[in-house]
Simulated scan of single mutants.
Amino acid sequence: MELLSHDVPDWTRVLAHRAPGDDAAERLARWTTPRVVADVLADSGRGLLAQVAGETTDRDWVDECGGLLGAVVVLAEVDAAASALRSAVARARAQALAELLLDHSLVELAAALGVSRQALHKSVKGVRGL
Results as ranks from 00 to 15, higher is better:
Ala38Ile: 01
Leu120Phe: 03
Asp63Val: 13
Trp31Ile: 01
Arg91Cys: 10
Leu4Pro: 14
Ser5Thr: 15
Leu97Trp: 05
Val37Asp: 03
Gly21Trp: 01
Ser105Cys: 12
Ala42His: 03
Leu120Lys: 06
His17Phe: 03
Ala42Glu: 08
Arg27Tyr: 08
Asp23Cys: 13
His104Tyr: 13
Asp22Met: 04
Asp39Lys: 05
Asp60Leu: 05
Gly54Leu: 07
Thr32Arg: 03
Val107Glu: 15
His6Glu: 13
Asp43Val: 09
Arg13Trp: 04
Gly126His: 07
Leu101Val: 11
Ser116Cys: 04
Val127Thr: 08
Leu69Gly: 08
Pro20Thr: 06
Ala24Gly: 06
Thr33Asn: 09
Ala119Thr: 11
Arg117Tyr: 10
Val127Lys: 04
Gln118Ser: 12
Gly47Ser: 03
Val124Ile: 09
Leu113Phe: 11
Asp58Ile: 08
Val89Cys: 14
Leu4Phe: 15
Ser87Leu: 14
Gly129Lys: 07
Val115Phe: 03
Leu69Asn: 05
Leu15Tyr: 00
Gln51Ser: 02
Ser87Tyr: 10
Val14Leu: 01
Val40Pro: 00
Ala81Cys: 09
Leu48Tyr: 02
His104Asn: 13
Ala71Ser: 05
Val72Asn: 07
Val124His: 06
Asp39His: 06
Ala71Asn: 00
Thr33Gln: 03
Ala38Arg: 02
Glu2Gly: 15
Val124Asn: 02
Gly129Trp: 07
Leu68His: 04
Asp39Thr: 08
Arg30Asp: 13
Lys122Ala: 14
Lys122Tyr: 15
Thr57Leu: 00
Pro34Phe: 01
Leu4Gln: 15
Leu68Ser: 07
Asp22Ile: 07
Pro9Leu: 01
Val52Asp: 07
Ala80Glu: 04
Leu4Lys: 15
His104Val: 12
Pro20Ile: 05
Ala98Val: 10
Ala98Phe: 10
Val8Thr: 11
Gly45Leu: 06
Ala82Gln: 08
Thr32Ile: 04
Gly114Cys: 07
Arg46Gln: 14
Ala16Val: 08
Val37Lys: 01
Gly129Thr: 10
Ala119Asn: 11
Arg46Trp: 11
Leu113Pro: 06
Ser116Lys: 07
Leu100Glu: 05
Ser123Pro: 08
Gly70Pro: 00
Glu99Pro: 10
Leu102Ile: 14
Leu41Val: 05
Asp39Arg: 08
Ala112Cys: 09
Gln51Ala: 05
Trp31Cys: 04
Gln95Met: 11
Ala80Thr: 05
Arg46Asp: 06
Gln95Arg: 10
Cys65Gly: 02
Ala111Lys: 10
Leu49His: 14
Leu48Ile: 02
Ala98Trp: 11
Asp103Val: 13
Arg93His: 12
Ala50Lys: 09
Leu106His: 13
Ala111Gly: 11
Asp10Val: 02
Met1Arg: 08
Ala90Phe: 10
Glu77Gly: 09
Ser123Gln: 14
Leu113Glu: 09
Ala84Asn: 00
Ala82Ile: 06
Val78Lys: 04
Ser87Cys: 10
Glu108Leu: 11
Ala82Glu: 09
Asp79Pro: 13
Asp23Met: 13
Ser116Pro: 04
Gly129Met: 13
Asp7Ser: 14
